[in-house]
Simulated scan of single mutants.
Amino acid sequence: MKVVSLYVDQRPPGDQSLDRAREFGFEIYPTIAEALRCGGDALAVDGVLIIGEHGEYASNELNQKLYPRYEFFKQCVEVFEADGRSVPIYNDKHLSYEFEKANEMVEDGHRLGFPILAGSSLPVTWRLPDLELPLGRRIEDALMVGVGSSDAMDYHVLEAMQCMVERRAGGQGVPEQGVSAVELIEGDEVWAAGENGRWSERLLEAALSRADSPLGLTEEDGRTQDLIGSGELRRLCENPRAYFVEYADGFKATMLLLNGAIRDYCFAALLEGDDEPVSMQFFLTPTPNVTYSACLVHKIVEMLETGVAPYPAERTLIVSGMLESFLKSLAAGKRLETPHLAVSYQPPAESQHARY
Rank of each mutant, 00 (worst) to 15 (best):
A152D: 07
G216L: 07
A211R: 01
E176C: 10
E176Y: 15
G222V: 05
A206E: 04
S150F: 04
S149C: 08
V165E: 08
V157I: 14
G231I: 02
E195H: 10
E183T: 03
A211M: 03
P175A: 11
S213P: 04
T224G: 12
G173F: 03
A169D: 12
E205N: 05
A160P: 05
R234K: 15
L208K: 02
L227D: 02
A152V: 15
S230P: 02
E201K: 12
D221F: 15
S149H: 15
A207V: 00
D151P: 10
L215W: 09
I228W: 08
Q225M: 11
I185S: 02
D212P: 10
L227K: 01
G148D: 04
G216E: 08
V179T: 10
L158Y: 04
E201Y: 15
E232Y: 08
R235N: 10
I185V: 10
W199A: 04
G194C: 04
D226E: 06
D154K: 14
Q172F: 10
G170M: 04
V182Y: 09
D212S: 03
N196L: 08
E220F: 14
V190A: 03
A160Q: 09
L158I: 04
L208Y: 00
R168L: 03
L215I: 00
D226I: 01
I228K: 05
L215R: 13
E159C: 08
E176G: 01
G148H: 07
A181S: 15
D221M: 11
G178E: 05
A206Y: 09
G197K: 06
V165D: 03
M164W: 09
G231A: 01
P175L: 06
A206F: 07
S150L: 09
E219L: 14
G148R: 09
G229T: 03
A211N: 09
R167T: 06
E159M: 08
D221N: 13
R168I: 06
E195W: 11
L204P: 01
E232A: 14
S209I: 06
G173A: 03
G187K: 13
E166L: 02
Q172L: 14
N196F: 00
G187L: 12
P214Y: 08
L203A: 01
E205M: 09
V182K: 03
E186C: 13
S200M: 10
G229Q: 00
G222E: 05
E166R: 14
R202C: 00
L215G: 00
V165I: 15
R210H: 09
P175G: 10
G194D: 02
S200L: 05
Y155P: 01
I228F: 01
V179G: 09
A152M: 14
I228T: 02
D188N: 11
E189C: 09
R223C: 10
M164S: 05
A211C: 14
L158F: 07
E176F: 15
Q162S: 07
P175V: 04
L158V: 01
A152R: 12
A193G: 02
A206K: 06
L227T: 02
G216N: 06
L233K: 11
A192T: 08
V165R: 00
G197Y: 00
